[in-house]
């Protein structure tokens, strides 16, 4: 599959990664090699096979509608790269 610099720009936009102009071509080449590696799979004829979304034959895993205690906020926020007393902090993302 051909990975163009336009596609690289689109993907980095979707994932909010800023890629310096000069790295785009290198990234395109690398990503193309990775994707080509998977191409071996397309040699198989899968026309009659239903795509698999789950490995195990499990259905209907449900839980009852019961409230459980939530986590201690300190414990949750301890995992955040940036935080204040009550919230996770992120770079400006709303207008």
């Amino acid at each position: 599959m051909k990975i163009t610099t336009e596609l690289i720009a689109h993907i980095s936009q979707l994932s909010r990664l800023s890629l310096p102009e000069g790295e785009q071509a290198a990234m395109a080449a690398q990503l193309e090699r990775i994707v080509d590696y998977m191409d071996v799979l397309s040699r198989l004829d899968t026309g009659d096979i239903e795509p698999m979304s789950h490995v195990f034959p499990v259905r209907n895993v449900l839980r009852a509608d019961e409230e459980q205690p939530s986590c201690d906020r300190e414990a949750l926020l301890a995992n955040a790269p940036a935080r204040d007393e009550e919230s996770f902090l992120t770079p400006k993302s709303v207008e």
């Binding site: 940036a82 204040d84 009550e86 919230s87 996770f88 902090l89 992120t90 770079p91 400006k92 993302s93 709303v94 207008e95």
Partner: peptide, 15 residues
Amino acid sequence: KLVHDPWTDQTRADY
């Protein structure tokens, strides 16, 4: 819910 804080120029996330 996201709330932007104009003082710190950061966004607070409440989940």
